[in-house]
Amino acid sequence: MQILDRTVVNRAKQAYSSRRVPLDEIKTLISEKRRPKSGDLVLARVVKLGSHQRIELPSGRRAMMNPGDEIIVAYGDRYAPDQYEAYVPGDLGPCHLVAAGGVAARAKSWHDRMGGPTEIEPIGLLGCARHEPLNIGDFALKHVPGPMPDAVFAVFGTSMNAGKTITAATLVKGFTDAGYRVGAAKITGTAAGGDPWLMRDYGAAEVVDFTDAGFPSTFNIDPETILDSTDNLLRALGSRGCSIAVIEIADGLYQAETAALAATEELRSILTGTFFAAGDAMGAVSGAADLARMGHRVVGISGALTRSPLACREAAKASGFPVFCLDELTNPEAVADWAALAGGRFETAAGQ
Rank of each mutant, 00 (worst) to 15 (best):
N10W: 00
A15F: 10
S18Y: 01
V21C: 08
P22E: 06
K27S: 12
P36G: 07
L41P: 03
V42L: 02
L43D: 03
G50I: 09
H52L: 12
Q53W: 07
R54F: 11
L57I: 06
L57T: 15
G60N: 04
R62A: 11
N66T: 14
V73D: 05
V73A: 13
D77A: 13
E85L: 15
Y87K: 14
C95P: 01
H96Y: 10
V98M: 04
G101D: 09
G101L: 08
A104S: 14
W110K: 00
H111K: 10
I120L: 12
G124T: 07
L134K: 00
I136C: 08
F139H: 11
L141E: 11
K142R: 15
V144H: 03
M148P: 00
F153R: 00
F153P: 03
V155K: 01
A162W: 01
A162G: 11
K164M: 10
I166A: 01
A168N: 03
A169W: 05
T170G: 01
L171T: 06
T176H: 13
G183F: 05
A192T: 07
E206H: 12
F210Q: 10
T218C: 10
E224G: 12
D228S: 13
D228G: 09
V246E: 10
I249R: 04
D251T: 06
Q255D: 12
T264Y: 02
L267H: 02
L267K: 11
T272V: 06
A277S: 14
D280I: 06
R297F: 09
S302I: 10
L305G: 08
S308N: 13
L310Y: 13
L310R: 14
P322I: 10
V323M: 05
C325F: 05
P332R: 02
P332D: 07
V335M: 02
W338H: 05
A340N: 02
G343R: 04
